[in-house]
Design a protein around this nucleic acid. Structure first.
Length: 238
RNA sequence: CUAGGUG
């Protein structure tokens, strides 16, 4: 069974979704019972493919066979929910999680992400507050949620709060932060964060960071500064 | 053998 799972995973990695599904059926035809991991790989694959309905279908089907979903199953299903902003389904799963498994940090982060993408920052904040040890990913999920809802100032103050607590930011969270600045037209803050990122935190800006900055500058009408940044791009990249 | 955050 383990090797079947590996095989399915291989198909998924090469984006041969149909082959993966076929493979899954064939293993059952041979009288082997898929493990939770088999289902997880499949569900994960459907949510990556944007086949959210199928993912939820598989999730229901696996429960129908009296297999217990594990944390990884919930993660994949929640990811599907965030993709289509399916708040009701997400809440249903949240309720299920409470009954069945001990919540871990990965799960909490996925919930925050899901609520954020569904526009329910109220609930996202609630989940966040219940976490005892918040790591960088949890912060990012929350901050990105506020950013996406247009609550830039909330996002930025959370970021400052996080740094006061001594959590080291990474390139991913800076992208959300820069996007928040861009959204709110906070040119100076954006420039400050951008500078701070490389000089204090030692993070090398990627193309994405530069795009974000150029977007910020462009929207604020600072076209010549934006142009200047574009000109300096190639030398910074290598 | 499978798992969370960014435009």
């Amino acid at each position: 069974v383990v090797s079947w799972n590996t095989l399915i995973g291989g198909y998924v990695a090469q984006e041969h979704i149909c082959d993966a599904l076929e493979c899954f059926q064939q293993m059952q035809l041979q009288g082997l019972s898929p493990t939770v991991a088999s289902w997880n790989v499949l569900i994960e694959c459907c949510s990556l493919d944007g086949k959210t309905g199928k993912a939820l279908e598989l999730y229901a089907e696996m429960q129908h066979q009296s297999l217990l979903p594990d944390n990884i199953t919930y993660l994949s299903v929640l990811k599907s929910c965030s993709n289509i902003a399916a708040l009701e389904i997400g809440e249903r799963i949240h309720a299920q999680i409470h009954g069945i498994s001990e919540n871990n940090l990965y799960l909490h982060t996925a919930l925050i992400d899901m609520y954020g993408k569904c526009g329910s920052m109220q609930k996202a904040q609630e989940v966040f507050d219940q976490i005892s040890v918040k790591d960088l990913c949890a912060w990012t999920a929350l901050i990105a949620g506020y950013t996406q809802q247009g609550e830039s100032k909330r996002a930025l103050s959370l970021f400052d709060e996080m740094r006061d607590m001594g959590v080291q930011p990474d390139g991913v969270i800076f992208l959300s932060v820069l996007t928040a600045c861009s959204h709110a037209g906070l040119v100076h803050k954006g420039l400050k964060y951008f500078e701070n990122m490389s000089e204090v935190c030692g993070i090398t800006p990627t193309i994405e960071h530069h795009s974000s900055m150029i977007d910020l500058l462009g929207r604020a009408g600072q076209l010549e500064v934006a142009l200047d940044m574009i000109k300096r791009l190639p030398s910074k990249v290598d």
